[in-house]
Amino acid sequence: MLMGLLNYWIVVVLMMSGLYIVIAHGNLIKKLVGLTIFQTSVFIFYISMAKIEGGSAPILADDITVYSNPLPHVLILTAIVVGIATTALGLSLVVRIKEAYGCIEEEEIQQQDNDQQAESKAEEVA
């Protein structure tokens, strides 16, 4: 049982370190890195389940009888592309945020927004 599932457990640890970075860190770029790691680990999970002991890459040849499962590979190809698309969009947001707020730390940004809201509320009272 240990050997049979060990691979999956490592993947879980990887996923969770990615997720931890996303939630715990305040730096916007680091959050995106965490997101990438989280996603990549999910890809590893999919690919792991496609593997068959003694199988080979799913490219048909005459002298091979056992192939690994091609379907997860296809799904993950798609998911990788989705991942890079998200990262690119996220990074472009970071660039714009840096230009607009002058920083890329979650706390500072929230601070600025709160200040502004407080200001507009104060105006309203006055």
Partner: peptide, 14 residues
């Protein structure tokens, strides 16, 4: 893991 296509893409992208 025998996923050569995926590996190719991940190397290029990741």
């Amino acid at each position: 893991m025998d996923a050569v296509d995926v590996a190719f893409t991940e190397a290029a992208v990741g």
